[in-house]
Design a protein around this nucleic acid. Structure first.
Length: 471
RNA sequence: GUCCCCAUCGUCUAGCCGGUUAGGACACCAGCCUUUCAAGCUGGCGACACGGGUUCGAGUCCCGUUGGGGAUACCA
C-alpha cells in the first residue's frame, strides 16, 4: 500500500478555530500513526477574506499546539495557473463547458423554479451550446452526469452519496477566471497525492460533487473521512460572537496546550476508557474507526479538569517558564525566580486549572505588599487575634530553621501554651496576615514559601493593623 | 422549502458480528481526611428520544415520528 498522505486545509480567516484545530489534529495524528505525510495548505482563494496576518495566526496556532507538518504551507492562491489548466483540460474533454448566463438571469430562473416547488438547480441552458473562449464574459461549469449515484464509502459515516440529478452543473470557474473551492480542492488534493481527506462534516454534502470532479478528471478519488462538528454549549453552532472558538484565545486564557489537545481529541474520538492522551499517545493510537458520528458539545469543565491534571504533571522549569508572563502581569513588574516561589507554585498546582488561575493564587507572593480582603480581615484580624499573632510571632522568631517541620512544631507549642487553642484559630489570622485572604495552601507551607523576613514583617504589620482597628 | 446526516447519564463517551446488573470520565451531591482552600479516598444521583416492526431475545437490525445538525453561493 502506498504512503498515507493527509492534509489540513484551513481558510485563513482570522485565527485557528476550535473545530479546525481538531481537524488538524486528526489529520496530523492519522499521518503520524501510519508513518505518512501531513501537508498544510492554506485555502485562500477567497481573496476578500484572506489576509497574510490571519494566515500567520493559523500557523502560529498550529505551532503552539505542537502540530508539525511535513509539506507546505502551500497557498491555494499560488496555484491558480494550475487550476486554470485543469479547467481547460476538462473543457477540452467535454467534461466542462462555458456558460454565459448572467447572475440576474440565474437568480430569476432559480426563484421561479423554487416557487414551482423544484430544487432550483441549474437548468443546463448553456450545457450543449459548445461555447468557445470568445463567447464573452462567462463562467465554466462541470458537465455532471444526468443521473447515477455519486457515492463513496466514508471512513466515518460509511456508504454515502447522492444522486447526480440532485446536483446540477455547478460553476467551477468565476467570470474573472479564478477557480471555485470545489474545483481547487480536487485539483490540489490530486496534485499533492492526498490519500485521505479528513475534514469537518460540513463538507459531507459537497463531497458528491467532488467525487464527480474526480471522475471527470478520470482519476480515483481519495478516501474521505468526515468528522462530526463541534457545537457550542448551547447546542447551537459555534459562533464567533458568542463562543470562544479561537485557539489563541484559549491560550491567552491560560490553558495548557496539552489540556487543549487532550480535550479536543476526545471530542468525537475515543479509545476505550482512556481519558488522558499526550500528543505522542494520540500519534500512536489514533484511528478513524472510533471517530463518532454525532456532533459534540464544547463543554469546558473537562478542559479545566485536564488543565489541572497537566499542571500537576509539568516539570518545574517548564511550569515556571510558561507561568512567568502571567505572574509578571499579576505582579505588575518583573518576577524573580527564587526557591520560595518555586515551592509555592508546586503547592498551587493542585489548586489551579489554568496558568491565569495559578498566577492569581500566587498574587500575595509575587507582589511586594499584601492586599487585604476586607471580609477576611474583619473575621480573623480582630481583637482576639492580636495576642495570638503576637505569640506566634514570638515563637517564630525563636526557631532556628525556617522549615515546614520547625514551623509546625512552633505552632503546636504556641497552641499548647495558649491553653489549647485549636490550630485553626491560630492559622487563620496568620494566613490573613501573610496572604491578605483566608485561602491558601497549608499555613506552614505558606510561611515557608514566603520566607522568614517577609513573613515576620507581614505578621508585624497585621498585628499593628489589628490593634488599631480593635483600639 | 429541498437534499444529506445524527440521536446512550447534565456533558464527553464505551457498547466490535443482537443475550451487559448498560461501563468509564467530567460535572453535581454526601462522607472521610483536614488549620482554610484544594488534592486524595469512599459512596451516591444519573442515560439507551418516542412509536411500530423483525427475533426466543433489540441500546445494538428495519420503518416511521420527534428533536438536533449540516448543505443548499460566481464563500471556503
Amino acid at each position: 500500500m502506498s504512503e498515507i498522505r493527509t492534509r489540513f486545509a484551513p481558510s485563513p480567516t482570522g485565527f485557528l478555530h476550535l473545530g479546525s484545530a481538531r481537524t488538524a489534529l486528526f489529520n496530523w495524528a492519522f499521518a503520524r500513526r501510519h508513518g505518512g505525510t501531513f501537508i498544510l495548505r492554506v485555502e485562500d482563494t477567497d481573496r476578500d477574506r484572506s489576509t497574510r496576518e490571519s494566515e500567520a495566526a493559523v500557523l502560529e496556532g498550529m505551532k503552539w499546539l505542537g502540530l508539525d507538518w511535513d509539506e507546505g504551507p502551500f497557498r491555494q492562491s499560488e496555484r491558480s495557473e494550475r487550476h486554470r489548466e485543469a479547467i481547460e483540460s476538462l473543457i477540452a474533454k467535454g467534461r466542462a463547458y462555458r456558460c454565459i448566463c448572467t447572475r440576474e438571469s440565474l437568480e430569476e430562473r432559480k426563484a421561479r423554479d423554487v416557487a414551482a416547488g423544484a430544487k432550483g438547480i441549474y437548468d443546463g441552458r448553456c450545457r450543449d451550446l459548445a461555447l468557445g473562449p470568445d463567447c464573452g464574459e462567462h463562467t465554466v461549469r462541470v458537465r455532471l452526469p444526468r443521473e447515477g449515484m455519486l457515492g463513496w464509502d466514508d471512513l466515518v459515516f460509511g456508504p454515502s452519496g447522492q444522486d447526480a440529478a440532485q446536483i446540477g452543473d455547478v460553476i467551477i470557474q468565476r467570470t474573472d477566471g479564478t477557480p471555485l473551492y470545489n474545483l481547487a480542492v480536487v485539483v490540489d488534493d490530486l496534485d499533492m497525492r492526498v490519500t485521505h481527506v479528513i475534514r469537518g462534516a460540513d463538507h459531507h454534502p459537497n463531497t458528491p460533487l467532488q467525487v464527480a470532479l474526480y471522475r471527470a478528471f478520470g482519476l480515483e478519488p481519495p478516501s474521505f473521512a468526515h468528522v462530526p462538528l463541534i457545537i457550542a454549549e448551547s447546542g447551537k453552532k459555534l459562533s464567533k460572537r458568542r463562543d470562544n472558538v479561537s485557539i489563541q484565545q484559549f491560550r491567552d486564557d491560560g490553558h495548557l496546550r496539552e489540556a487543549l489537545i487532550n480535550w479536543i481529541v476526545r471530542l468525537g474520538w475515543s479509545h476505550g476508557d482512556t481519558e488522558i492522551f499526550s500528543l505522542d499517545e494520540i500519534a500512536s493510537t489514533f484511528d478513524l474507526e472510533h471517530v463518532g458520528r454525532s456532533a459534540a458539545r464544547a463543554e469546558p469543565s473537562k478542559l479545566l479538569w485536564l488543565g489541572q491534571h497537566y499542571l500537576k504533571a509539568l516539570g518545574s522549569n517548564d511550569l515556571f517558564a510558561r507561568l512567568r508572563p502571567h505572574l509578571e502581569q499579576v505582579a505588575g513588574g518583573p518576577v524573580t525566580d527564587e526557591p520560595g516561589l518555586r515551592v509555592l507554585l508546586d503547592l498551587l498546582r493542585e489548586r489551579s486549572h489554568t496558568l491565569i488561575e495559578m498566577a492569581a493564587l500566587a498574587r500575595w507572593h509575587v507582589r511586594q505588599s499584601v492586599e487585604f480582603d476586607e471580609k477576611a480581615v474583619q473575621k480573623h484580624l480582630n481583637a482576639t487575634a492580636v495576642p495570638l499573632l503576637g505569640a506566634v510571632r514570638n515563637a517564630l522568631v525563636e526557631i532556628p530553621g525556617w522549615t515546614v517541620a520547625s514551623l509546625e512544631k512552633a505552632f503546636e507549642q504556641v497552641a499548647a501554651a495558649a491553653g489549647g487553642v485549636s490550630l485553626g484559630k491560630l492559622a487563620q489570622p496568620v494566613r490573613v496576615a501573610v496572604t491578605g485572604g483566608s485561602v491558601s495552601p497549608g499555613i506552614h507551607e505558606t510561611l515557608c514559601s514566603l520566607g522568614r523576613e517577609r513573613s515576620l514583617a507581614r505578621i508585624d504589620a497585621a498585628i499593628a493593623l489589628a490593634s488599631t482597628r480593635a483600639g
